[in-house]
Structure formats: C-alpha cells, structure tokens
Design a protein around this nucleic acid. Structure first.
Lengths: 196, 196
DNA sequence: ATCCTAGTGGCAGAGACTGCCATTGTCAAC
DNA sequence: GTTGACAATGGCAGTCTCTGCCACTAGGAT
C-alpha cells in the first residue's frame, strides 16, 4: 500500500468527521443543544446515525473536540519551554499560546455560546478534562524528575493552567475582547499576586 | 401546619434520599458504575425507578452528591474568613476545613474508588463543577466589591481552591495518607512556591 | 368521617447508544 | 478489467436513561 492512499483514506475520514462536527455545532447554535437529536445531526451531515457513533462516542463528545484538538500542542508547548524556566512562566507561555490558537478557530465562539446556554453541553465539555489533565500532567512530570511528591505536584501543575485557560476563554468570549492574550495575561498576573 | 410536621416530612425525604444513595454507592463498588442500572439501584433501595428520578436527576448525579453536600459550607467558610485576610489564606483555610469534612465521611473512599475506576463516573462527578464554581465565585465576589475585573478574579479564585481540593483528595486517597490536612497543606505550599 | 395534599408507582414513549450482519465501496494484485 | 481482500457504511433490533401523565395511597387538617 502506498503512503498516499493511506493518507487519502485518513483525509476522507477527517472530512466526514468535520462534516458531522460542523453540522452539529450549527444545529446546536440554531436550536439549542438539548433539542438537537443525533438523528438530526446525522441527517444534516449526510450520514447514518449509526455512522455518527463511529466518529463520536456520544452527542456530548462533540462539545469537547474543540479543546481536545489542541491537547498535543499544549503538552508540546510545555515540553518546549526551557528547562530552567519557572513553572509559572511555563504555564503562562503555554496557556497564552494555546489560548491564541483556540480563539483563532472560527467556531470557537459558537462552541462557547452553546456551552454557556446549555448546562448539559457545558458538562459534556468538562467531561474531557480528566483526559486533558492526565495529558498535561505527564508533560509536567518530565520536568520534575527529581522533585519531591512528583505526582501531586504534576497534577496541581496540570490543573492550574487548564483552570486558567478555561476562565480566560470564557471571559474573553463574554466581554467581546479583541485580544485574548491580554485576558490570559491578566489571569496570570492575578495568579502571581496571590502569594504577594 | 405545625413546624414539626414539616420537618418530619423533610426528615423522611432525606431518609429515602440517603437510602437510594447508599444503595447506589454500594452497588457501584460491588459491580462497577457502568454495569449498575437505575432499576438495580431502585430495587435495592426499595423504591420504584420512577421515584429514583424524583430524588436524583440522573444516575451520574449520584456521583456528585458527595461534594455538593458541602457546597454551602465551603461558601460559608470563605465568607467567614476575616476580611483583611489574603485570598491565598482564605482559600487555604477553607479548603483545609472542607477537605477534613469530606475525608471524614464514611463513604468518601468508596466514591473516589468508583470515580477512579470508571471514567463515566468521574465525568459525572465533574459535571457538578460549574454549579460549584458559580457558588464559590459568588462567595469570593463579596470580598471583591471594589476590585478591577471583579468577575474574572472571582472565577479564578473559585477555580483554584476547587482544583486544589480535587488534587488533594485524590492524592490522599491513592496514597493512603492518614491526615488529609497534611496533603492539603502541601498543595497550598506548592501553590505558594509558584511565584517565588 | 371527610377532604386535601404530598409522595408514590406504573405506563408509554422519546432519545442515546451498542452489537450484529448485510451491503457497498476502494484499493491492489492479478 | 476482473477479482479478492478489507475498511467503511447502513439498517435493525434491543437495552438503558429519562420524562410526562395519570391513578393511587397515606397522613394531617377540619
């Protein structure tokens, strides 16, 4: 099998996946998360309901994909920071970088709008957090090889930036800020003042 | 209507509620969160499935009750701290206090065990976080009346202790520590070192 | 004894999700 | 171009969650 054919398949799958996701978000925005059924989404995307579940494990799963997409890049951003940089600076730079990517995505506002209006959608979004935390925690753990209470520290260091990111993005959305970096900087400046 | 009869009614309701919850947690521990159906729980608690849903909005809802119970007390603990105390100290004292209460509950270990083993259960547990955050954020907002970016700050101050609490409790459970205060103190000491 | 009301159970039905099997398409070797 | 494997899809049946509705019952108030 040639390399291109394999990639072609993968590309086509991604196409279907995107079609489903886009259709779903649009329907959520138009009709509300709760009133939209999986059948609606499948029909709008031109696939069978059965196929929907082959691409997404649940209806709520759709709400997390916006963030999960940047999972590797967040971990990578953390790993890429210089080794002697303080944890605080690592978090700050990584969050700033990812926040900008998230804010740049055309449908980010739609996703947040849905999550804001529907508690069920927001919960579904949060359902991805354990997975996300684990991912980030592993990235931090590599910087902590000889630290006391490695895992406790890693988990805390994973939870903080995710909380900061979440707070920043929601504030950015609700207040119609132009530059999300500014909001994120504010969050970290507040974080820094905590001990002072 | 006399005062006592109303209280009696409430007491009876709480009895049913506890019966359902206890039965559910026991079943979860024994058979796993996913394999237990609502019918199982209802039968084990001696009520109809229909009644189950009058006490808990969903099967997953059961997983959050352990924490939600302390919702008001956490907010109250925050409000009770002296007004000139730093945010950091407010968080520290409040979390320590609540952590001790949570750790003292006889079924806390069971709940964490279930949440640890089943991703679905953990997600259901996290589903209560928005509600919880909102609650804590309101408590902090009262301390911030004249602060810039009130709500951004309040949300961050709500997210941090909840993250700290979550991390501390899980670590305490997994490492079989005797005193959860020590673990919580460690978390906050790590938090304090962040800017230093 | 008789209302009145809150709590309950049963029933029907929608929607989420899964396992299974048949069908279709796609690529590769012939 | 035909064929043969293999992945993706669709349809179907069935389970489970959750809700609206209505009938029933128990306990307190009158």
């Amino acid at each position: 099998m040639t390399d291109s054919s394999g990639k072609l398949q993968a590309r086509k799958q991604q196409l279907v996946r995107d079609a489903i996701w886009d259709a779903a978000i649009d329907l959520f925005v138009a009709n509300g998360f709760d009133s939209v059924t999986v059948d609606d989404i499948a029909q709008s995307a031109g696939v069978s309901p059965r196929t929907f579940f082959r691409y997404f494990s649940s209806k709520g799963d759709l709400m997390g994909q916006g963030i999960v997409t940047y999972r590797e890049q967040l971990a990578e951003a953390i790993r890429a920071r210089p080794r002697r940089e303080s944890h605080f600076e690592v978090m700050r730079h990584s969050v700033l970088q990812i926040a900008e990517m998230v804010a740049g995505h055309p449908r980010t506002r739609s996703v947040i709008a849905v999550a804001t209006k529907s508690p069920g959608a927001r919960e579904a979004q949060l359902a991805h957090r354990p997975q996300l935390e684990e991912f980030v925690a592993r990235a931090f753990a590599q910087r902590l090889r000889n630290s006391r209470q490695n895992d406790l520290r890693a988990r805390l260091l994973a939870g903080l930036p995710l909380t900061a990111l979440d707070v920043a993005i929601r504030y950015w959305y609700e207040h119609g800020e132009e530059d999300i970096r500014k909001t994120a900087e504010n969050v970290f400046s507040m974080l820094g003042e905590l001990t002072g």
